[in-house]
Design a protein around this nucleic acid. Structure first.
Length: 103
DNA sequence: AACATGACATAAG
DNA sequence: CCTTATGCCATGT
């Protein structure tokens, strides 16, 4: 059996439309040992239906360098479609950073 | 068990 | 702005 990443998916699914959050933020919120786990979880389940992984970005606002689906363009396009402002593959965290509810 | 790899974060050059 | 390097921890070989 593999580690249960359910909490990560649950949290990602709670990200409001038009907002984004970072791997590290999720990791801290869920009390995970490392933000790498978050990325692993999302890469494992590229389920864009149940899990809006495109709303998860790196701490510096950069998008995933190796997005599992259509690539970087797809993620950026999805975010833009939800009203997220993007600047050269960089999300304006200042405006769109969503802080997950602590447990 | 040891080594290598990865959708990260932070620091340093 | 870029690339390296280190810490981190689960996975796969």
């Amino acid at each position: 059996m593999v580690t249960d990443y359910a909490p990560i998916y649950a949290l990602v699914q709670q990200i409001p439309k038009g907002k984004v959050t970072t791997y590290g933020r999720i990791a801290v919120c869920l009390n995970l040992a490392s933000p790498r786990m978050v990325g692993r979880a999302l890469h494992l389940n590229p389920d864009s239906e149940g899990t809006p992984c495109h709303r998860v970005v790196a701490s510096n606002g950069r998008l995933a360098p190796s997005y599992a689906f259509g690539g970087l363009g797809e993620q950026a396009r999805k975010l833009a479609a939800e009203g997220v402002q993007i600047k050269q593959n960089r999300v304006i965290l200042r405006n769109h950073l969503w802080e997950p509810g602590l447990l």
